[in-house]
């Protein structure tokens, strides 16, 4: 058995445009990306809106069929056609969405929400069905009084805890977390992050963590991948990522984060003032897609798209500069 629980190889997801001026073109939401997640680790997939991070997550979870590429889960290629995906995988890969307000049916009570996955996957404890759900609630630190409440009666943080409990109910191996705390206050975020860390240890879970918050990534993830316009720009273990970022986009992202201490300012060693906005994924710039915003772009960046290069063990960067520096 390989140490990777999930491998994504050359994944592509294009959305064809069927209406309007740009008809016939397609949105290259995810364009040839590869990464892997080891058992028990957390891979953070970081990017701005439109970077394709959520599309990647939806491919893994089986909400979209991939255009090309391969997804391997526990050494078994899982079909790119979501209709052929066996029910077993829906049990082993779970997802927590960004906004718990929209992922929990407002008209159903907590007990029904939590018992649905158990019923579908025939995991109901016949002797004590209520106790089983109460135990799930306890796992996410919610009181059993909530059994008969609807999500509307819960606070934002509590709803997200409920969403985590639902994901946990089928005893999955991999949980995709799509910005699970971005809609919540920091004091609640802290609680949920700590809970997720505890659950990861208790159940040997692997996480694919989609986020924009690098401060959170620093304290939560094992490895980090930065996405820009459907491609991965840099991927590295968390320590190295923050001590030795290579890609200009990584540096720009780091510079943009509002921080609260001098110690953190030091992490932003090379201040790259952010400028411009992410271009439309329909008209991706020629050459390196970051060239419109890169302060260090030179001739080659406008002609040729760089490829992933390993700069250190486990640390890959997709940038001409890094390549040229190594050659000289």
């Amino acid at each position: 058995m390989s140490e990777n629980i999930l491998e994504v190889n050359n994944l592509k997801k294009y959305f064809p445009i069927t209406k309007g001026k740009e008809k016939g073109l397609s949105v290259k939401a995810v364009d040839d990306i590869s990464f892997s997640i080891k058992r028990g680790e957390t891979l953070a997939l970081v990017g701005e809106s439109g970077s394709g991070k959520s599309t990647t997550a939806y491919n893994v979870i089986g909400m979209y069929s991939a255009t090309a590429g391969q997804i391997i889960f526990k050494d078994e290629p899982i079909s790119n056609n979501i209709k052929e995906r066996p029910l077993r995988l829906r049990k082993e890969i779970q997802m927590v969405f960004q906004d718990p307000g929209t992922t929990l049916n407002p008209r159903r009570i907590v007990k029904d929400i939590l018992s649905l996955p158990l019923k579908i996957h025939k995991l109901v404890d016949k002797k004590d069905p209520v106790g089983q759900i109460v135990r799930l609630l306890e796992e996410v630190e919610l009181p059993m009084e909530y059994l008969f409440k609807t999500p509307l009666a819960l606070g934002g943080g509590e709803r997200q805890m409920l969403a985590v409990a639902r994901a946990l109910s089928t005893n999955p191996d991999l949980i995709v977390l799509d910005e699970p705390t971005s809609a919540l206050d920091v004091s609640i975020q802290a609680k949920i992050i700590n809970m997720l860390l505890r659950l990861q240890k208790d159940y040997d879970l692997s996480y694919l963590f989609i986020t924009l918050d690098l401060s959170l990534v620093r304290n939560f993830a094992t490895r980090v991948a930065i996405m820009y316009l459907g491609k991965i720009a840099e991927i590295a273990p968390t320590e190295i990522f923050f001590s030795d970022p290579e890609h200009p986009y990584t540096k720009m992202l780091l510079s943009a984060i509002p921080v609260i201490s001098e110690k953190e300012e030091e992490v932003k060693h090379a201040k790259v003032t952010p400028k411009g906005e992410i271009p439309s994924p329909v008209n991706v710039p020629k050459g390196c897609s970051f060239n419109t915003r890169c302060p260090l772009a030179f001739d080659r960046c406008f002609v040729e798209d760089p490829v992933m290069k390993e700069v250190a063990s486990d640390h890959q960067v997709r940038c001409h500069l890094v390549e040229e520096r190594r050659q000289s």
Binding site: S187, N194, E264
Partner: peptide, 29 residues
């Protein structure tokens, strides 16, 4: 304010913020 927080709430709030420099996440309030 960032040098020293007096109110227990301010202190807890500052502690809850994940740091770019690492060090884990506080318990929350």
């Amino acid at each position: 304010l960032f040098r020293e927080q007096y109110h227990p709430y301010t202190r807890a709030l500052v502690d809850c913020i994940p740091r770019l420099s690492g060090g884990g996440v506080a318990e929350g309030i």
